[in-house]
C-alpha cells in the first residue's frame, strides 16, 4: 500500500506537496521502493527468458537453478547497479544543488533521486516492453530526470 502511495506521489513530482510528502518517507522505505521498482523493471527480461528457456539449452543447467538465477540473482544484480546508479545521479544532484545555492543533504538528494526516477523508468519500461530500439531509450529518461530534480531542488528556498 505504501508502495502505491509513493508511486502516486512520485508521479506528481515536481509538485511541492508531493515532494514534501515523499520527504517524510524513511530511507528504509525508499530502498524498498527502489527494490520493488527494480523488480518491475526486469520483469520484461524475466518474461522473455522464461519464454526462450524452451528453445535454448543452457548447457544442461537444471531447470530449478536456471529459474532461481532468473528470479533472485538477476534482479539482485540489477538492484546493485540501481543503487550505484542512484548514488552517482545523487552526486550530480549535489553539483546542481551547489549551483542553485540550496542546502540539501546528500541522503535527501538520494531519496529525491530515487522517487524522481519513477516517471523516467516508466518511459524506459514502455520502450522495453514494446522493444523499441532507439537512442532515446537512455537519453529521454535521463533528460526527464534532470528536469525533475532541478525543479525539485528549486522548491527549497535559497541559502541566505
Amino acid at each position: 500500500m505504501n508502495f502505491l502511495i509513493n508511486v502516486k506521489n512520485s508521479i506528481q513530482l515536481p509538485k511541492k506537496e508531493a515532494l514534501f510528502r515523499l520527504n517524510r518517507v524513511s530511507m528504509r522505505d525508499t530502498m524498498v521502493y527502489a527494490l520493488i521498482f527494480t523488480f518491475i523493471l526486469v520483469l520484461p527480461d524475466i518474461f522473455h527468458a522464461f519464454k526462450s528457456y524452451q528453445e535454448v539449452d543452457y548447457f544442461g543447467m537444471p531447470r530449478e537453478l536456471y529459474f532461481i538465477q532468473l528470479i533472485i540473482l538477476y534482479p539482485a544484480t540489477i538492484f546493485l547497479f540501481v543503487v550505484i546508479g542512484l548514488s552517482v545521479l545523487s552526486g550530480l544532484a549535489v553539483i546542481l544543488r551547489n549551483l542553485l545555492h540550496r542546502k540539501l543533504a546528500y541522503q535527501q538528494l538520494w531519496k529525491m533521486t530515487a522517487f524522481s526516477l519513477t516517471i523516467p523508468m516508466i518511459f524506459y519500461l514502455i520502450f522495453r516492453i514494446f522493444q523499441i530500439e532507439t537512442v532515446w531509450i537512455n537519453l529521454l529518461p535521463l533528460m526527464i530526470y534532470f528536469f525533475l530534480i532541478t525543479k525539485m531542488i528549486l522548491v527549497f528556498p535559497r541559502v541566505k
Binding site: F20, N23, S26, A105
Partner: peptide
C-alpha cells in the same frame, strides 16, 4: 517550511 525532511 514543513518540508518533512527532519521527520524521516
Amino acid at each position: 517550511i514543513n518540508c518533512g525532511a527532519c521527520l524521516s
